[in-house]
């Protein structure tokens, strides 16, 4: 296989990746820094500080931070439960957490409308239990719920993988050396699962930050996230330059999260 011509077999992909990955990204930057006439400008990028855009961006950051945190808070205990308490067939069980992804994600998000709406499933339950109804549809909590719902599996998987990979004997060794539950968690389990947690965080953070679908479906079109702004610039206003400018800003966040991920990945294999 070390024939000197063998490496040219990769040429089609190389051409493809330059044409469909590198050039498009350069185009985003090109459009971001030019105006409609093709002259250089930083207006498109600077436009992020306009009232509407900065509001959308900050809102997006707030949403994505909240959804990342919630996902972590839900997924971590789940990973611990899956890898310790449940002894039987955890591979089948973890499959259960992935399976929902095989139903169209737009439809699944849309179904939450049904569950959350004024006379929906949840309020039916609440009324039956004589509890006050919950009106969160088309409000921020609904969007947050949609994000947590859509991206939770992205957190569960890496966290579960890193927690379940911890050698049981390490925990036994810690107990043997006198550690109680608190010490075992903070000195052994948590640091060893950190790589998984970090990948989980970036995997939830980036799509939460950039989504426009969830806010569309569950926000009733009234709440604009940065993703919605970009989507409208491209598909409705056909203002490529402005859209590319905001996309370039988003890419900064994505690059930061990529750098963090790769840093922790390297530490993991030290």
């Amino acid at each position: 296989m070390n024939n000197k011509y063998t490496r040219y077999v990769a040429a089609p992909y190389l051409i493809w990746s330059v044409g469909f990955i590198i050039i498009p990204l350069c185009l985003v930057l090109y459009y971001a820094f030019t105006n409609a006439d093709g002259a250089f400008t930083i207006d498109n990028v600077a436009d992020i500080i306009s009232y509407v855009n900065i509001k959308a961006l900050l809102l997006s950051i707030a949403f994505s931070l909240a959804s990342t945190l919630l996902c972590l808070l839900i997924a971590y205990p789940l990973a611990v439960v899956l890898s310790s308490v449940i002894s039987t067939n955890s591979s089948i069980l973890s499959l259960l957490f992935i399976l929902p992804m095989w139903m169209n994600s737009l439809l699944r998000t849309y179904a939450w409308q049904n569950i959350l709406e004024r006379k929906g499933v949840i309020n039916g339950f609440l009324t039956a239990l004589n509890l006050p109804p919950l009106y969160i549809i088309n409000k921020p909590p609904a969007i947050l719920l949609g994000m947590v719902y859509d991206f939770l599996p992205f957190m569960i998987l890496p966290v579960y993988n890193s927690v379940s990979r911890i050698d049981k004997d390490l925990i036994n060794a810690a107990r043997d050396l006198g550690a109680g539950y608190r010490d075992i968690f903070f000195r052994v389990i948590w640091p060893l699962s950190l790589p998984g947690v970090i990948s989980g965080i970036t995997m939830v953070f980036v799509p939460s930050l950039t989504t426009f679908v969830i806010s569309d479906i569950l926000g009733g079109g009234k709440i604009l996230l940065i993703g919605n702004v970009i989507e409208q610039l491209f598909t409705q206003d056909s203002d490529w330059n402005a859209g590319a400018g905001l996309s370039a800003v988003l890419m900064i966040f994505i690059v930061i999260s990529m750098v963090i991920t790769s840093k922790y990945d390297k530490e993991d294999i030290r």
Binding site: L25, V206, T210, F234
Partner: peptide, 16 residues
């Protein structure tokens, strides 16, 4: 493309 946000991949291809 794996780590990039889908929306950025989408608009970059659209621009292409």
């Amino acid at each position: 493309p794996m780590l990039n946000a889908d929306i950025v991949t989408g608009v970059s291809l659209m621009l292409l």
